[in-house]
Amino acid sequence: MDNLINYTLRIADNALILGQRMSQWCSNGPTLEEDIAMVNISLDLFGQANGFYEYASSIDGNKSADDFAFLRSEREYFNNLIVEQGNGHFGDTIVRNFLFDTYSVLFYTKLQNSSDDTLAALSSKSLKEAKYHLRHSSNWLIRLGDGTDESNKKVQKSLNDIWMFTGNLFEMDELDTDMLNKGIGIDNSLLKSEWDKKVNDTLSSAKLNRPEDGYMQTGSKEGIHTEHLGHLLSEMQFLQRAHPNAKW
């Protein structure tokens, strides 16, 4: 049971943390339309996170979805490192989201066949939204990469800087293997070749060079994060920490 809760939390945490990042664009978008787009994506992600946290809460029987979202410390979050990376400029955000959205679509496509009915149902729902998000991020990536010299240079740098967080997406640990053997979870490592192909296709349309797979940062499965997560949590959790059990 603990494994199933933690497996579910990994999925929920990815959605929550990226959702929080996207919400930070609210009122800071480059245009009104993009502002609205990013906040809409944020809302979808929060909704997905809520579904998975509610499920974790129902298995746990003790903690609520909000407890999971707001009352854990940094070491107890299991989101992939890439989603906690800062928004940077608009191109940085687009590159980060594009790499993660591509993964997300492949991940949910597989997980919708989980032997766990709830995970399967939540995945087929999330998949529809993830596809839409991918359409948004890949269209922008092509526009920026194949735009001006300056926009191309900027997103190429975004890509080079964030690349070392992509390896983490395809890792398998004991918990993943246990879930895979039970027919509940999926094999992340098998998503890599399809991800490579999709990413390479879009990068070539965007006239961007794929960075080499060099050093890859790891740690999220043990709750070891980059310095960005703590700052994000301090903002996100402030209200619940300062006024415990505050209700909206």
Partner: peptide
């Protein structure tokens, strides 16, 4: 105009003929 609109279910379009912007209920 934009894949996203004022609510989650809509995107934003414009008409080339009458020039009016309008909302489109996204197909999902």
């Amino acid at each position: 105009i934009s894949e996203f609109g004022a609510t989650a279910c809509k995107s934003l379009f414009k008409c080339i003929d009458c020039l009016e912007p309008f909302e489109f209920f996204k197909c999902i």
